[in-house]
Nucleic acid binder design. Sequence first.
DNA 1: AATCCGGTAATCGTATACGATCCGGCCAAA
DNA 2: TTTGGCCGGATCGTATACGATTACCGGATT
Lengths: 295, 295
Amino acid sequence: MVQAAAKSPAVKSPAVKPASGKAAPSRASGRKITAAEAMAVPRLPQTGGKSGPGRKAGAGGSRATIDDATIYDSVYTAIVDHIIMPGTKLPEDVLAKAFGVSRTRIRKVLLALAHENLNLVTLQHNRGASVTKPSVQEARDVFAARRVVETGIAAELARRITPEQLAGLRRFVAHEHEAEKTRDRRGAIKLAGEFHMELAKLMQNEPLTVFLRALISRTSLIVAIYEAPGNAMCSHEEHGILIDRLAAHDAAGAVRYMEEHLLRLEGGLDLNAAKRRPVDLQDVFARLAGSAKGR
Amino acid sequence: MVQAAAKSPAVKSPAVKPASGKAAPSRASGRKITAAEAMAVPRLPQTGGKSGPGRKAGAGGSRATIDDATIYDSVYTAIVDHIIMPGTKLPEDVLAKAFGVSRTRIRKVLLALAHENLNLVTLQHNRGASVTKPSVQEARDVFAARRVVETGIAAELARRITPEQLAGLRRFVAHEHEAEKTRDRRGAIKLAGEFHMELAKLMQNEPLTVFLRALISRTSLIVAIYEAPGNAMCSHEEHGILIDRLAAHDAAGAVRYMEEHLLRLEGGLDLNAAKRRPVDLQDVFARLAGSAKGR
DNA sequence: AATCCGGTAATCGTATACGATCCGGCCAAA
DNA sequence: TTTGGCCGGATCGTATACGATTACCGGATT
């Protein structure tokens, strides 16, 4: 069941689905999630209601409970779409009340999110779950891993890509292009990530696809923390050039361009500069105290 | 906590720890796990006991419960070491009784195993957990993914590997060599996998390391199902040659050799031949009936 | 004789109860 | 003023209860 939830992001590929236009205010991290935000991307509006103090709603044959995958997707989407920022606490009973289920199922979803997708959610013993806040080093590692994986994908695709697949990619970039004006930066990042996922899917290799999805999800977290103020990243023009090299079956060129493309993406962040957020001070002390997790 | 369990296999690197000499009889798949097998690699022998029908052992300040990570590692090790074969059912209460805990914690561990490590455990709704049984296609995908990732690792290592790291690798291969006589095939496979993990660790990149661990774990499952009768695979001589090319900073050569090495490993399995196990017949019928899971 | 159908046992999914742990503020003492 | 301990509230971890689902098996029917 949660397995189904786990697979669902890998399976569904909603070419270009209209993003919810909810412009989330850029907020400082560390706060708790509110019920409204948890419900940000709900799929089932909670049939039964029955939110009063009297529980025991299981009576009768009515199937009133929301699907696990829906809860999973809601939280997942809220995180990768920056609706809830890294560091945000995800208390079980808040989510439980938000979705109208018991803590048990919330816990299951949080466990899943913490285990796959490269820890989109971090669990701390007796302290609950929170949206993972990747360190600078972890961010660099993610990009390094993406270079390894995606250059490998580019090399292979340059060999075996078909005209139909190329046409599909070009269509996708066209979507990116036309969406550029109407969408905000957040939507652009999302689409850019989906383009990279499209490339991975052409490999027809599930492990690689799953891993790249994890890396891209995590990239979204990294962007949320470290994005530089005014910087256009992962532009669709670059995607177009990459497609050209794939179309020319120029493996070396595609690999090189993919690497540069990813380096540019990484370079667009301010991973070097001292963190400009004052709240991070406390984070430093926390890191010094608990010497684990250091690298 | 389960997060700790999740990280534990990535963190601990017990160079060459003495494998338990338990020679598991090659058995048909599809059976259930027994308590004895579940306890195959226990770390804590269950302090309190109190296994009688009367529960409510929580009284008093005595801390009698086994650690989550221990349960996780026990099951993980039992699977990748082929002590329990793919297809084996993992019922919650059997494991619960074996470890002397409630189903809740077993479920947590099974959930973790199903979500990370590329689904070492498969969950089916209302039907429980079982050791994942990779299909031929999934097996090929795993090897393809390993080629992508490990050639990338080889290329990078050829550039930046240090003499100390090379010495460490050679020492490891020496362990492999000296263990070749005293160990069975199972131990050799385990050591071979660990060598590949050593390479990954030199990259100092956690995402890559975690992913490769997942791939190698899954490779272990694949070998359990599809191993050809008399075939030496992933020999340490080949590992030595690979080290030589890394030492020479011959990136292209190291990449090429790594690819051949992995292709040889894959070629050593009988992925093409029809499965030769008679018990699999029942599985075929099950697969025909429930048409899901096909790719 | 084969097939369909219903009952029973096993197993899982979910909710809830309760103890344990941790964080916060408050007060007392140096 | 600062430091240390104490206490309450909030939150989590675990166990258990109970309903729901599934598989298994025997009997009746065609």
